[in-house]
Simulated scan of single mutants.
Amino acid sequence: MTHPVPPELNPKSDLETAQSSSPTLWYLQYWPAILVGLLLSMGIIGLSAEQVPAFAIWLPPVLAVVLLLVAIITAPRVKKPQETPWDKREREAALLAPKVPQAEVSETTTPAADAEATIVEAAPAPKAAPAAIVAGDVDVLVLWGSETGTAQGLAEMTENKLKDAGKTARAVSMGSVKLEQLPGFNKVLILTSTWGDGEPPANAIDLWEACQKQKVDMSKTGFSVLSLGDTAYPEFCKCGKDFDAFLEKMGAQRIYPRVDCDLNYEANFDKWLSGVQQALG
């Protein structure tokens, strides 16, 4: 199965070079070359030992050992770049995204009695607000928590696949629902990424805070969770794990086990979606 680039997988800024390792620790990249240079200096000084003080012979190896120790001690302290691989994918996709032409501007003139020219701009058509989600309208509520658009794109693919299978499904941002609404849905699927140090995406913060403060009876609701993350970070897929644990604690019935996805999420997403479709029947 091929996966098109999700709609918002093409926004952010170029942080990769700006947030690279600190300039004050430049020697961490070049200390092997510096070490070799010091050792060569020691050899050269050793060949002319009669013309230099005795302590100069030992100065290069001592400096080399000190540099090595400093590198070993400080390397783990270098702060990890803030740009995640999801950001990198989006930035690269943004470069390939077609540019939307600006609205054309036409200049018209009034009749001869009025010599002033006026500028007429084409007014953009207003966007219709999405209809409020109602429990009785859908078989499956697909909730997405996304900072950059990846989880949203997968949620919309999930909605389309379920519709193709004859289900009434709707993909909705977590920011568009209230916790007290969830028990009214027969099936709830959650697709969410994890941001920062295990934090929920921006559009999922309100819902997650409500989960920490309120209790709801979800014993009549079936659910499954797909979480997106990066194993390079300690809190891998924490947001998805948190929602999974909360729903289970509230009595919801897990229709398919949670699947945690690393950067190459395609295979795991296909596996999860196939399992969910089979569980839904």
Rank of each mutant, 00 (worst) to 15 (best):
residue 272 W to Y: 08
residue 242 D to I: 04
residue 28 L to Q: 00
residue 24 T to R: 05
residue 18 A to G: 05
residue 42 M to R: 03
residue 96 L to V: 06
residue 218 M to R: 03
residue 181 Q to W: 08
residue 6 P to R: 02
residue 209 E to V: 11
residue 233 Y to V: 05
residue 14 D to V: 03
residue 278 Q to E: 15
residue 2 T to M: 14
residue 123 A to H: 13
residue 113 A to F: 12
residue 104 E to V: 15
residue 195 W to L: 12
residue 259 V to R: 06
residue 108 T to K: 14
residue 6 P to G: 04
residue 229 G to L: 03
residue 174 M to V: 06
residue 60 P to F: 01
residue 123 A to F: 14
residue 135 A to V: 10
residue 158 T to Q: 06
residue 136 G to W: 12
residue 19 Q to S: 14
residue 182 L to N: 02
residue 83 E to P: 12
residue 155 A to M: 10
residue 147 E to F: 02
residue 180 E to F: 13
residue 111 P to I: 10
residue 191 L to K: 00
residue 9 L to D: 02
residue 99 K to T: 14
residue 258 R to F: 05
residue 275 G to H: 06
residue 57 I to S: 03
residue 38 L to H: 00
residue 137 D to A: 15
residue 104 E to K: 15
residue 7 P to E: 11
residue 266 E to G: 13
residue 137 D to M: 10
residue 173 S to A: 15
residue 213 K to T: 15
residue 76 P to L: 04
residue 73 I to L: 08
residue 16 E to P: 02
residue 25 L to A: 03
residue 174 M to H: 06
residue 271 K to M: 08
residue 72 I to Q: 09
residue 121 E to A: 09
residue 2 T to V: 14
residue 149 G to L: 02
residue 58 W to I: 08
residue 271 K to L: 09
residue 125 A to H: 12
residue 190 I to K: 03
residue 167 K to F: 15
residue 41 S to H: 00
residue 98 P to V: 10
residue 15 L to M: 08
residue 281 G to A: 15
residue 249 K to N: 08
residue 74 T to L: 13
residue 97 A to W: 09
